[in-house]
Design a protein around this nucleic acid. Sequence first.
RNA 1: GGCGGCAUAGCCAAGUGGUAAGGCAGGGGUCUGCAAAACCCUCACCCCCAGUUCGAAUCUGGGUGCCGCCUCCA
Length: 486
Amino acid sequence: MPLTIYNTLTRCKELFEPLAPGKVSMYVCGITAYNYFHVGNARVFIIFDVVRRYLRHLGYDVRYVQNFTDIDDKILKRAVSEGSTMQAVADRFIAAYFEDADRLNILRADSYPRATHTIDGIQRLIHELEQRQYAYAADGDVYYSVRKFSGYGKLSGRKLDEMQAGASGRVETDEEGEKKKDPFDFALWKAAKSGEPAWESPWGKGRPGWHIECSAMVRQELGESIDIHAGGMDLQFPHHENEIAQSEPVTGKPLARYWLHNGFVNMDGEKMSKSIGNIRLTRDLLKEYDPMAFRLFVLQAHYRKPIDFTAEGLEAAASGWRTMQEAFQYGAKFQALPGWSDGEALDQAIVDRFNEAMDDDFNTPIALSVLFELAKDLRREGNQLVHQGRLDLPIEQLQLQFQTFVSLAKVLGLETLSGKIVAHSSMSGDLTIGFTDAKIEALIQQRKEARQAKNWAEGDRIRDELKAQGITLIDKAGGVTLWHRD
RNA sequence: GGCGGCAUAGCCAAGUGGUAAGGCAGGGGUCUGCAAAACCCUCACCCCCAGUUCGAAUCUGGGUGCCGCCUCCA
């Protein structure tokens, strides 16, 4: 089955066909750099990272662009309160973005355009809109004339008249409102206020409005028409609607063929918002949870549905990730066994099941169920090996399963980061080194003698001592004791 | 007021006409001096009512409940 994607623009699942065969251009709205990004942002980045990885897996050459908004009222506000500059604040949180995103195993974009580096493109676009009379200058500001664009509302499925009739709580009494010809018109360019960063322009000193940057950056980085444009649900209106309005009258082409929007992350059933004060920063979350556990948490629900962020849910995901980790770790044990070959073949039937799930609008919950089936098999065999010293399945089959597991997990960005996790988890690393295999064997022998003398207390003491060093004993029938490091 | 979404086991979550994936947690068992680990087994008729159909969690109508967008917000 070929890939089908739910397109917000048409409200249908559609067959995915890129503009240019074999190539995909993709733009994801990134952060406004005024703070560390929160878990809702993280969901966006994880989900579209997976979309990108899957497209690659299907053989597409993907060009992925994600912007940084580095001029904005919130950044300015923070700069003022810190006695810093807008650029310094933005630079700091952009650097932080990379630290956090890297930990979540989010692949680097091909390009990260910044609004302040796109001023020329923004001004050119505004100028073109003005020429076509989609924009008008008013006292140093420039506004987009929403009524001019017949397609306005096509993405979010609303009509201007209906919105106006019912807009609740809308206040249009500020001075900006007075300059607009229509309350739904929005700013493309804003006249400079004293003390704020500003750029020279045909309309006087000022700075870009809220939506124009993305239109300009998409055009500059990817061209006039792209394959996929993505972001959170709330960007549908007005942000993406406005992007379409700004771009399409100028280019005469659809801005994007497929519009994808993901559902929100709620906090214990409530919307995450500043006013409630329940914003959860990804950086803080990662102090408590393995980044991969969070990735698993996000991918266990379909991307278009809301997910509820709860401690219980995170714990469940962390347990699930432990299962997968064990499967990864047993791979190393299997590799050392005779019969493990150099091949990298995959189990095609399983790959097909995985692809079938992902082809259906990126159904990651089902894709994960395929991975869990593999992981549980691998874990059982691994345990069998450690506890019984034998395997039930032929090594060739295990190799196939393991390679398939690793390969498909990687498509979802689930990877063990080369032993780092293990190193971090052993708190008493120095002491562990002190316990050589020989010493462990000797202690086990002591314990065996104690137990034969029915000195259970001494036997348990030795077991506890080893446990404290991260060494687990497995007593088997016949007095044989196996052990392994955790 | 306008538009849209959701309601499946203790929790999370797939499934959109053919008799309920998967994860987490739980229960029972084997093994053990006890324990741990491991292994085996086990756990739902899908919010309510009516209808369509040989057959519905899945379609239609009605009801109830929850949520989102319309405002900077992922």
